[in-house]
Simulated scan of single mutants.
Amino acid sequence: MFGDMMNMMGKLKETQKKVEETKKRLDTVLVDEQSNDGKVKVTLTANRTIKSIEIDDTLLEDKEQLEDYLIITLNKAIEKATNVNETELAAVAKEGMPNIPGMDMFK
């Protein structure tokens, strides 16, 4: 039993290390999004850090319209990045779960 417990602890530590490595890698995964008409384009990492924003000059004339464009486009980009982030981290966590009786709900 003690050996099994040590094995599980080792596997959990290994999984934690893989999760941290995945988080670092997600800083390099870029997600692009743009408004329907292409007037606003944003790029962010899968960890939801904004890397760039491009705005068409025609939007600079109307502050309210620009704000609307930014909100919509950034929210779509954040949703995409969140989906990538959660999928990647869930895959690593699932892969590293030790086989604990009664805990197969994570599989």
Rank of each mutant, 00 (worst) to 15 (best):
M1S: 15
F2G: 12
F2H: 11
F2T: 10
F2P: 01
G3T: 03
M5Q: 12
M5W: 09
M6R: 09
M6K: 11
M9V: 11
M9G: 05
M9W: 09
G10F: 12
K11F: 02
E14R: 05
T15A: 15
Q16H: 08
K18R: 15
K18Q: 09
V19Y: 07
V19C: 01
E20Q: 15
E20G: 03
E20Y: 12
E20M: 14
E21L: 15
K23L: 14
K23F: 08
K24R: 14
K24M: 11
R25W: 06
L26M: 12
D27G: 14
T28W: 06
V29E: 15
L30Q: 10
L30E: 13
V31E: 00
D32V: 03
Q34I: 00
Q34M: 11
Q34L: 01
S35W: 02
S35R: 01
N36L: 06
N36R: 11
K39H: 03
V40L: 00
L44N: 01
N47W: 02
R48D: 07
T49C: 09
I50S: 05
K51V: 13
S52G: 15
I53Y: 01
I53D: 00
E54T: 05
E54N: 09
I55S: 02
D56V: 03
D57A: 15
D57P: 08
T58I: 04
L60V: 02
Q65I: 12
L66C: 07
E67G: 01
E67M: 11
D68Q: 10
Y69H: 12
L70H: 06
T73F: 01
N75G: 05
K76L: 13
A77Q: 10
A77W: 00
I78D: 04
E79M: 14
E79G: 15
E79S: 13
K80M: 07
K80F: 09
A81W: 03
T82S: 15
N83S: 14
N83W: 04
V84I: 13
V84G: 02
N85A: 07
T87I: 02
T87K: 07
L89W: 05
A90R: 10
A90C: 03
A90I: 00
G96S: 03
P98K: 01
P98I: 02
P101C: 08
P101L: 04
G102E: 12
G102C: 12
M103V: 03
D104I: 01
D104A: 08
M105N: 13
M105W: 13
M105P: 01
M105K: 09
F106Y: 13
F106W: 15
